[in-house]
Design a protein around this nucleic acid. Structure first.
Lengths: 209, 209
DNA sequence: CCGTTTCGATACGCTTGCGTTCCGAAACCC
DNA sequence: GGGTTTCGGAACGCAAGCGTATCGAAACGG
């Protein structure tokens, strides 16, 4: 292969193990799940990954940047539904959110991530870019399509609607401690749909799709 | 004063300083504000309070119980309005919430408290009892009165409404990073009022007050 | 085969914070 | 004044985690 040599002149010596790289990131996520962000130690990461500490420090200068990169591994690819009904699409998305809160392997991550975000701007940026952003954009698209279709008021404050939908289960889980269940997410969707329903005017029946 | 001697037989020796007690709790809160819960150290608390570490450990067995007691000092006495209009009362309460989020001395506490709650059940209980509970009960009372008065649907899910109202600014501040401003809290109140408005029946005009 | 680099593993020095213990001084009761 | 306890302050031993250094072995290019 001449190409690879010409394109990025492979440095001499033994190449870095991609497997080790991935194992380290996976170990970091697993440990955050189990004990939270601030119980996370570089030693534990290396041990869990079956890797020497030097192998970790060779790749990342410290815990912060490592975690920032690992964030992207938490949850992947939440497909954005588009059935033609904002109500149905919202329910689909919120049920996926519900699953996350009910998953004992994922929910404990939340408080750790919140704490990490508050303390580190790079981590906050990474969480928003890799984790919050994509989900929020998907939901925003659903709401925007609903507004365009007339299911929601044209002047709906999408950001407010998004924060209402995402904030309710988030707040209940982290602060209030109540049950994050189907009733909550369904209720939140219904409430938002009612709150931003178009004015009940002269015609306006239901059959829009 | 014979009474005090008879009632609780004061122990011999120099009595514990109430001033030191308060200074320690205040110092703990001040330090959480400045650097977050997990940057909080017993040494820093004692130093800030102008107190020896022994004086701290004589009163609390560790950081956790100390913080649990200090929580009550963060914010005091949020009077529950009762003007006869749930809309107006809600706006009053949410504006108080807004002030908390906009206060640079208070807002940074939130993420620290969330992290502390996630790690310690006693702290979680203390935060809910001293901080979240009273505010939530006040707002629940406002909503309940509104429902009784017919401003809200009789079957309104109060817990859901509360989580929507409190969750939106909470989520925006901690996760999304957007501006927590008047538009957000006013919008949230309006949205909840619309979401749980009684069915638009025959009469129902606006003049309720 | 030789030089270079990474590999997993271990040991090291360093810092930080915990919780305890001591000190002389002060405050309280008898 | 004597006995007791707390006071603020400092020192202590201990444990944990950081980031670096070193080891022999292994994986590459030339």
């Amino acid at each position: 292969m001449e190409r690879s040599r010409l394109e990025n002149t492979r440095p001499p010596g033994r190449p870095r193990s991609a497997a080790a790289h991935g194992a380290i990131l996976d170990a970091a996520i697993a440990l955050i799940r189990e004990a939270g962000y601030d119980a996370l130690t570089m030693e534990a990461i290396a041990a869990r990954a079956g890797v020497g500490k030097a192998t970790v420090y060779r790749r990342w200068p410290g815990k912060e940047t490592l975690v920032a990169e690992a964030i992207g591994r938490i949850v992947r690819a939440v497909p954005t539904p588009d059935t033609g009904s904002a109500a149905e699409d919202l329910r689909t998305l919120m049920r996926a959110t519900l699953r996350m809160y009910q998953d004992p392997a994922t929910a404990p991550l939340l408080s750790g991530l919140v704490a990490a975000m508050a303390r580190s701007a790079p981590i906050a940026a990474a969480v928003r870019a890799e984790f919050v952003g994509p989900r929020r954009e998907g939901m925003r698209a659903v709401l925007a399509r609903g507004a365009a279709r007339g299911e929601l008021r044209a002047d709906t404050d999408l950001e407010l609607a998004l924060d209402l939908l995402s904030g309710a289960p988030f707040y209940r889980y982290l602060v209030h401690g109540g049950a994050v269940d189907e009733a909550l997410v369904e209720g939140a969707v219904d409430a938002v749909l009612r709150a931003f329903a178009p004015e009940v005017g002269p015609i306006t029946r239901k059959g829009g799709g």
